[in-house]
Measured scan of single mutants.
Amino acid sequence: HHHHHGSGALAALHAEGPLAGLPVTRSDARVLIFNEWEERKKSDPWLRLDMSDKAIFRRYPHLR
C-alpha cells in the first residue's frame, strides 16, 4: 500500500538477483529511509530522521 507524499519521489530498486528489492543508489536509499520514517513517525512522533551516509551503510551495506 504505497501512498505518495508531496515530493512523489520513487526509489529505484534492484529488480533481480541477490540485491532484489534493495535501493540502487544512496539517494534511492534516502527515499526509502524517509518514507519509512514518515510511516513510523505516526506511532512514534519523536523518531529522528537519520539519512546520513553512516545510517545508509548500516542499513544497506551493499551501497558502501
Score class of each variant (00 low, 15 high):
His1Cys: 11
His1Ser: 13
His1Gln: 11
His1Thr: 09
His1Trp: 07
His1Pro: 08
His2Phe: 15
His2Thr: 08
His3Asn: 07
His3Arg: 03
His3Cys: 10
His3Glu: 07
His4Ile: 13
His4Phe: 14
His4Asp: 06
His4Leu: 14
His5Phe: 14
His5Pro: 15
His5Arg: 15
His5Gly: 07
His5Asn: 13
His5Val: 09
Gly6Val: 15
Ser7Pro: 09
Ser7Trp: 13
Gly8Trp: 07
Gly8Met: 10
Gly8Phe: 11
Gly8His: 14
Gly8Arg: 04
Ala9Asp: 13
Ala9Leu: 09
Ala9Gly: 11
Leu10Gln: 11
Leu10Cys: 08
Leu10His: 15
Leu10Glu: 09
Ala12Ile: 14
Ala12Phe: 13
Ala12Leu: 14
Ala12Ser: 13
Ala12Lys: 13
Leu13Arg: 04
Leu13Phe: 09
Leu13Met: 09
Leu13Ala: 05
Leu13Lys: 04
His14Cys: 04
His14Gln: 03
His14Asn: 04
His14Ser: 02
His14Arg: 03
His14Met: 02
Ala15Lys: 15
Ala15His: 12
Glu16Tyr: 14
Glu16Gly: 11
Glu16Lys: 08
Glu16Ile: 12
Gly17Thr: 03
Gly17Trp: 04
Gly17Ser: 03
Gly17Met: 04
Gly17Gln: 02
Gly17Ile: 02
Gly17Asp: 04
Gly17Arg: 02
Pro18Leu: 08
Pro18His: 08
Pro18Gly: 06
Leu19Glu: 04
Leu19Ile: 03
Leu19Ser: 05
Leu19Met: 08
Ala20Cys: 09
Ala20Thr: 12
Ala20Glu: 09
Ala20Arg: 14
Ala20Asp: 05
Gly21Trp: 01
Gly21Val: 04
Gly21Leu: 05
Gly21Glu: 03
Gly21Thr: 04
Leu22Trp: 04
Leu22Ser: 03
Leu22Asp: 01
Leu22Cys: 07
Leu22Ala: 04
Leu22Ile: 03
Pro23Val: 01
Pro23Ser: 01
Pro23Phe: 00
Pro23His: 00
Val24Met: 15
Val24Trp: 05
Val24Ala: 05
Val24Lys: 13
Val24Gln: 05
Thr25Trp: 04
Thr25Cys: 08
Thr25Gln: 05
Arg26Cys: 07
Arg26Tyr: 08
Arg26Thr: 13
Arg26His: 10
Ser27Ile: 09
Ser27His: 11
Ser27Trp: 14
Ser27Glu: 15
Asp28Ile: 02
Asp28Trp: 03
Ala29Cys: 01
Arg30Asp: 03
Arg30Trp: 05
Val31Ser: 08
Val31Ile: 14
Leu32Ala: 03
Leu32Gly: 02
Leu32Glu: 03
Leu32Ser: 03
Leu32Trp: 04
Ile33Asn: 00
Ile33Lys: 01
Phe34Trp: 13
Phe34Val: 07
Phe34Leu: 11
Phe34Gln: 05
Phe34Tyr: 14
Phe34Cys: 05
Phe34Arg: 10
Asn35Met: 13
Asn35His: 08
Asn35Asp: 05
Asn35Glu: 09
Asn35Phe: 14
Trp37Arg: 01
Trp37Ile: 02
Trp37Gln: 02
Trp37Lys: 00
Trp37Asp: 00
Trp37Met: 02
Trp37Phe: 06
Glu38His: 13
Glu38Met: 15
Glu39Ala: 08
Glu39Lys: 06
Arg40Thr: 05
Arg40Pro: 01
Arg40Ser: 11
Arg40Gly: 14
Arg40Tyr: 09
Arg40Trp: 05
Lys41Ser: 13
Lys41Gly: 05
Lys41Gln: 08
Lys42Arg: 07
Lys42Glu: 10
Lys42Asp: 11
Ser43Lys: 06
Ser43Met: 14
Ser43Asn: 13
Asp44Val: 07
Asp44Glu: 11
Asp44Trp: 10
Asp44His: 11
Asp44Cys: 06
Asp44Thr: 08
Pro45Ile: 09
Pro45His: 09
Trp46Phe: 12
Leu47Cys: 08
Leu47Asn: 04
Leu47Ala: 13
Arg48Asn: 10
Arg48His: 12
Arg48Ile: 06
Arg48Ser: 07
Leu49Lys: 01
Asp50Glu: 08
Asp50Arg: 06
Asp50Asn: 07
Asp50Thr: 03
Met51Asn: 05
Met51Arg: 04
Ser52His: 03
Ser52Gln: 03
Ser52Gly: 04
Asp53Met: 11
Asp53Gln: 05
Asp53Trp: 05
Lys54Pro: 08
Lys54Tyr: 08
Lys54Trp: 12
Lys54Asn: 12
Ala55Arg: 05
Ala55His: 15
Ala55Trp: 04
Ala55Thr: 10
Ile56Glu: 00
Ile56Leu: 06
Ile56Ala: 01
Ile56Arg: 00
Ile56Val: 09
Ile56Trp: 00
Phe57Arg: 03
Phe57Gln: 08
Arg58Thr: 14
Arg58Asp: 15
Arg58Ser: 12
Arg58Phe: 12
Arg58Cys: 07
Arg59Met: 05
Arg59Tyr: 07
Tyr60Asp: 00
Tyr60Gln: 00
Pro61Ser: 03
Pro61Arg: 02
Pro61Ile: 02
His62Lys: 00
His62Glu: 01
His62Trp: 02
His62Asn: 01
His62Thr: 01
His62Ala: 12
Leu63Trp: 00
Leu63Tyr: 00
Leu63Arg: 00
Leu63Phe: 03
Leu63Asn: 00
Arg64Cys: 08
Arg64Leu: 14
Arg64Ser: 12
Arg64Glu: 12
Arg64Phe: 13
